[in-house]
C-alpha cells in the first residue's frame, strides 16, 4: 500500500516534469503543452500502453491530463470493437470523460458561489 502511494507520487511527478520541460525548454505555452499531453495520452492508448500504466501507477496515471486522451480513446475503441468502423463514429458521441463533465459542473457551481476578486 505504501508502495502504491510512492509510485503514484513518482509517476505523477514525472508527468509534471515532462510538462515543465515543455514549458521551459521547448518554450511552449501552457495551452500547447496541455494539448500535446492529451494527444500523447490518446496515442499511447492506441498502442495499448496507457492501461498498463494505470494498473501500475493508479492515481499517478489517472490524475495527469494525459488520462483525458486515454479515456476518450478507450471509449471510442470499445465501441469500435463492438460495432466495427461505424462504431468509431457512433462511439465518438458516447465517449465522455468524467473530468470534463466534472469541470463543467463545478465550474458553473463555482460561478454561482464565488465572486471574482478582480485581477491581482
Amino acid at each position: 500500500m505504501t508502495a502504491s502511494f510512492l509510485i503514484a507520487f513518482v509517476v505523477g511527478g514525472l508527468f509534471c516534469v515532462i510538462g515543465q520541460l515543455l514549458f521551459d525548454v521547448a518554450k511552449l505555452t501552457p495551452g500547447h503543452t496541455l494539448c500535446l499531453l492529451v494527444v500523447s495520452g490518446a496515442v499511447l492508448d492506441g498502442f495499448g500502453l496507457y492501461e498498463p500504466l494505470i494498473d501500475f501507477a493508479g492515481a499517478g496515471a489517472t490524475i495527469p491530463i494525459t488520462s483525458f486522451g486515454n479515456s476518450l480513446t478507450h471509449g471510442a475503441l470499445q465501441e469500435a470493437e463492438k460495432h466495427g468502423l461505424v462504431g468509431v463514429i457512433t462511439g465518438m458521441f458516447e465517449v465522455t470523460s468524467s473530468g470534463i463533465s466534472a469541470a463543467i459542473l463545478f465550474g458553473f457551481i463555482a460561478s454561482l458561489l464565488f465572486r471574482s476578486k478582480g485581477r491581482p
Partner: peptide
Amino acid sequence: KPFSRFSKT
C-alpha cells in the same frame, strides 16, 4: 508485486 502490475491482465 509493484513492478508486475504492468502485466496485471
